[in-house]
Write a protein that binds this DNA or RNA. Sequence first.
DNA 1: ACCTGAACACCGTTCAAGT
DNA 2: ACCTGAACACCGTTCAAGT
Lengths: 226, 226
Amino acid sequence: MPPRRTPASRRDRPAKPPLSRAGVVAVALRILREEGLEKVTMRRLAGELDTGPSSLYVYLQNMAEVHGAVLDALLADLPMPDPATTKDPRGALTDLLTAYTGLLFGYPSLARSVLALWPSGPNYLRLIDTTIALLDALGVPPRQASWGFDVLLQYATATAAEQATRDESDDSDREWDGLTEAIGRAPGREYPAIARHRDDLFSGTPEQKLRWTLTALINGVAGTPA
Amino acid sequence: MPPRRTPASRRDRPAKPPLSRAGVVAVALRILREEGLEKVTMRRLAGELDTGPSSLYVYLQNMAEVHGAVLDALLADLPMPDPATTKDPRGALTDLLTAYTGLLFGYPSLARSVLALWPSGPNYLRLIDTTIALLDALGVPPRQASWGFDVLLQYATATAAEQATRDESDDSDREWDGLTEAIGRAPGREYPAIARHRDDLFSGTPEQKLRWTLTALINGVAGTPA
DNA sequence: ACCTGAACACCGTTCAAGT
DNA sequence: ACCTGAACACCGTTCAAGT
C-alpha cells in the first residue's frame, strides 16, 4: 500500500490548515467586519475553508452558535474597568454600557441576532461580572444588582438592534422610519397624548437619549427595593 | 367575443374572494395562532389564498410589513385603560405593560421579529398614546414621558423575545439555557461578582422579576430629570 | 472521529407577460 | 391596476458513505 499523501488535486496549493472551531469563528469574524452578518452563511464559511457546509457541524451546533461566538470575539476588544479600584463606579458603568452599545452599533444585524440569543461566552460573562461589580460598588443591594444587570445589557443590545432596521432601508424609501412618520402624522383627536408631546418626542440627539436612558435605568435599578 | 367568465378550472369551486391587504393579514393571523410565525411564509399565504406569492406584493411590501400588520391585529385585543379617569395610573401602567408582555409571550417569535421592526399600526400607536398618558397622569414631566415610553415597551418586547430561544430548543438539549448554565458554572476566581451573587441571580419567579423590573423602569423614568 | 458531497426541504423577491 | 407562473438566487441542516 502506498503511503497516504495529499491528493494530486491539492498538491502545489497552499496547505489546507485543519478545521477547528477557532478557525471557523475567525473567518466568520472577518466576513462580518468586511461584508456584514448577512454574508456569514454556512456555505460561505465552508467555501472559505475549502470544505463543504456539513463539515462545520463538527465544531458548531448551528448558526446561532456561530453568532454567539462572533459576539464573544468582538467583546474581547471592549475595555473593561476594574470595579475594585475605580473611583467613579457610576461613570464607569455608564461608559461601559455606552461602549458596549457603540460596539454593537457597528454591527446592528448582529445585535438583532444577539437579542434572540443568550450569549454565554467568556467575554460576555466578563461583561456581566463587571456590570454587577460596578452596581455593587455603587451601593446597589445584591438582589437588585442581580435582577438589574440584564435590563441594562438588554437595553444596550435592543438599541443597537433598532438601528439595523434603519440601515436596511435605503434613503429613497420613505418607510424607513415608519414609527417616526406615524407619530408625526398621528391625528390629535385619536392620539391626544402623542399630540401633546409631539415636540418632546422628536427632541434630543440619539447620544443624549442614550445617556439619559442609561442613567434612568441605573437609577431605577438602584432605587427600587426588590 | 364571448363574455368573460370564470375559467372552467374554477367553476364549481367556492368563489375566490378578491385579494386584499386585510384578507392577507387575516390568513396570516390564523396561521400564526394555529401553527406559529415560522409557518407564515409568502408561499403559504399565497397558497391559502389560491394565488402565487408574487400577487401578495400588491398589498404588502415585504415580510416585515406582514409581521407588523399581524402584531397590530393582535393588539386589538389588548384592554386599554382610560388614562383620564383611572384612579391608579401606576397600577394601570404596570397592568398594561404586563398584559402586553403576556400577549407577546404567546407569540415569542413574533416578539423577536417586532424588536427588529418599528411597529407603527393604529393599535400600536394607541398603546404608545396610552403609555404616555399614564406617565403624564403619574406626574412624570413631559420630556421624560416622551423619552421613556419606548424603554418600557422595548423591555416588554425583549423579554418575550428571549422566551423564543427557550421555546425553540427541546428539553433534552442541555444548551437551551446556555447563560444560566454558564452563570452556574462560572469559576469564582475569574468571575467573582457572579460568584458572590449566585443565589440572587437564580432567585425569584419570572413574574416577580417582571413586576420588579417594570417598577424599576417606571421609577427610573419618573425620577431621572432629562 | 472527522470529513464529505449530495440531497432535502425549503425561503423572499423580482420580472416579464398576461388580463 | 391587478394578477400570475416561473425563475433567480439563495438558505440551514441532515444523512449515508467515506477515510
